[in-house]
Amino acid sequence: MDYTLREMMAIMAAREIHDGDIVFCGTGISMVAAMAAKHISAPQSIIFFETGAIDSKLEEIPMAVSDSRVMYGAASNGGLLDAFATMQNRITGDHVIGILGAAQVDKYGNLNSTCIGDYSNPRTRFSGSGGACDVASFVPRCIIFMQHEKRKFPVKVDYLTSPGYLDGPKGRENAGLMPGGPTAVITNMGVMRFDNTTKEMYLAGYYPGITPRKILDNMEFSVDISKATEVPPPTTKELNILREKCDPQRLLL
């Protein structure tokens, strides 16, 4: 069955979500991924939003985390303080998996969603942190969505908005952050993970038709490709659920 790279990315992220996870969702493709996980492999996962809605019904795709569609049928409609406390609090926070996107990611999974160029005089300004810095500070597991392009995988991010492993294995601890950090970077070409010891990014999988060489060509820094294997494509079942149940109006896919 034919599929698009966006569909592949959504399915790859869905495969990272375990049953019982509380899934912190941003806008766009992360919502489709969280919905796909719930319909495919993690029916007991719980989707929640930084605006304060938890376990929303999501009969239609929300276009923003404040969309009234996240309010309908939720277990509770609170506010931002409730949502972030859920992640800062270890009792619930340790069960949260975050899904984030960014303009840049470095080899330690630090994210930039603020600006390109110098902060005081930026060439390009982006939206800024939103809740991303908070999520990345608090939760033990994070999935990052990226497009594989050289400028998006720089040696050093222009502005460090959301913490990954900062400068390496002891980075988070030295800064005073909770344990955590990104677990996977899912791109339009493959899946990267982080070495347990060095906390450096490595290539774990590449999509059918993509080579590890091509992935390296699309990054400013180099990563270990020795452990990489080809990722199985989405199954017909996964694709059908994604298209029919998660985004039938084709708003995001």
Binding site: Q88, D134, S137, F138, L160, P163, L166, G171, A175, G176
Partner: peptide, 15 residues
Amino acid sequence: VTRSGMGTDIVNRWG
């Protein structure tokens, strides 16, 4: 008080 943002440029860079 919060535990969010340590080690980031939100802390290090001031507008």
